[in-house]
Amino acid sequence: METNKSLDPRVQRLNIGAQNGEANIETHLVTWEVFHQEKKGKQAVHVGIVHASSPELALVYAKEVYGRRGKTTNLWVVKTSDIFTFTPEDEDVFNTAPEKLYREAGYYKVRDRIEAFQKRNKETA
């Protein structure tokens, strides 16, 4: 199949021939984790990352990538290397949390006891 001359006038103006070979890409900008706050009173929620060389630029990119649609009140960026997390293997340290029902409001039920007490009182009266 024959290669067309570009239909794009912008590409024609650049006058770039087809070159081959690997691009020499050696730079790695650091990444920033982006948190998005939809409106005042709501939590900032993690939405993804951007690559940037400074927090100021990270905010600019975050605005373009994560604040382009819908409502945004604020964006936070935190350098990925400044975030500390549990390892996935430690997930089990949280296993017992839902089991400790004595820490839940729903665990405490006294209505039966009150009714039994009132019934007993009525009988003895």
Partner: peptide, 16 residues
Amino acid sequence: RNALMRKEEKYVVPLA
């Protein structure tokens, strides 16, 4: 990109 690079910054794999 080269002008923006800060050599002292270390790349780590993003979290999520």
